[in-house]
Write a protein that binds this DNA or RNA. Sequence first.
DNA 1: TATTTTTGATTGACTCATCAATCAACAAAA
DNA 2: TTTTGTTGATTGATGAGTCAATCAAAAATA
Lengths: 201, 201
Amino acid sequence: MPKIGMEPVRRKALVDAALRVIGDQGTLSVTMSDIARTAGVSPALAHHYFGSKEQLLIATIRSLLAQLRDDAVAALQAAATPRERLSALIRVSFRAEQFAPETIAAWLAFYSEAQRSEDVRRLLVIYARRLRSNLLASLRLLCAFDDAERIAEGAAAMIDGLYIRQSLRSAPISIEASIALTEDYVNAHLRATDGGSSPSP
Amino acid sequence: MPKIGMEPVRRKALVDAALRVIGDQGTLSVTMSDIARTAGVSPALAHHYFGSKEQLLIATIRSLLAQLRDDAVAALQAAATPRERLSALIRVSFRAEQFAPETIAAWLAFYSEAQRSEDVRRLLVIYARRLRSNLLASLRLLCAFDDAERIAEGAAAMIDGLYIRQSLRSAPISIEASIALTEDYVNAHLRATDGGSSPSP
DNA sequence: TATTTTTGATTGACTCATCAATCAACAAAA
DNA sequence: TTTTGTTGATTGATGAGTCAATCAAAAATA
């Protein structure tokens, strides 16, 4: 069995397994054994490649973040106008995989961990900043500077809030309804702050 | 030392200690010893009164919820018009204690736990439902039925979202700014859905 | 080509620490 | 003396991290 060049393969398998196990159990208190078993290797190997559970978790978050970034980049490239880019960002946030119960459970677990681990916190801050600045870039072309800041802040909060509410699975909101709520928010404010399409000078 | 009638005193001390320790450490993976020490008793006593860690945690969430409910009731009673009641609900959600980092960290930990414990989940659903129905009761008097549903959903999401974003402590938003964002949302939509003050028939 | 050496991949078995839960015992009030 | 409050000591389980040993492919050598 021992073929050369296994390292990247195992690393990926372990990261994917970690995400799955964490999503299923809804907590970071999963054992290295669980993760390793899901990845089809021994617990010792997980330690061999990642050194510690913490490092494996961090790699897992990085992987989630990278996927989210790639999705956003792709969606933005396919959009032509600022308004379309705005909608693309909203749509990406509610992608089916991202909005799946296990993914949301994993995100929640990471947010909770961020209270303790500075490394985890820093990674989540990157996500928050990126979402905000992406929204801002489009909004600045659609309304006054100050309004753009406020709307971006509000839209980001609404997106995150829809996620957390989804995690309780009582009266779950559909993906389309979530997108509609966020779009409505943006529309109402773009309309309220000026005629509808005159960007700041 | 053993004075009679200690049970309620100890229970409260343990629940309060649990909330504090959980908030400080940002996780439910705190030890019974930590909690007991903070409450000034032995770990064995915590088990004596609560039977298990799970039960103590549940009592802790109940206590948080009860306080939130009492705050809401008080705020609602002090408000006269539907519009005032709406603002009162928003203001209560962002109470200083509720918005404190430790409280938010505790909430986050509970949400995460809800993925595993059906009991915890049920309690959090109660909170979500209560917030929604409180908002709805006021909104129904201010706009059409369908609009009320959507605005309530959106406002609740925004409130929860502002909480979760606060937990990262990057670019923290002030209490007043959070209230303003939520008020703006409600105002914009009340304005958009009809002239401004004609309730549904 | 055949043989030896090196090296990466992999694991079972073990250590060490932590923690929830239990229990027997004791102290003071009633 | 019965009841209530309280604890120290102990147990049993669990889980992260370590380590020495094994295995097979690749590289070097003859």
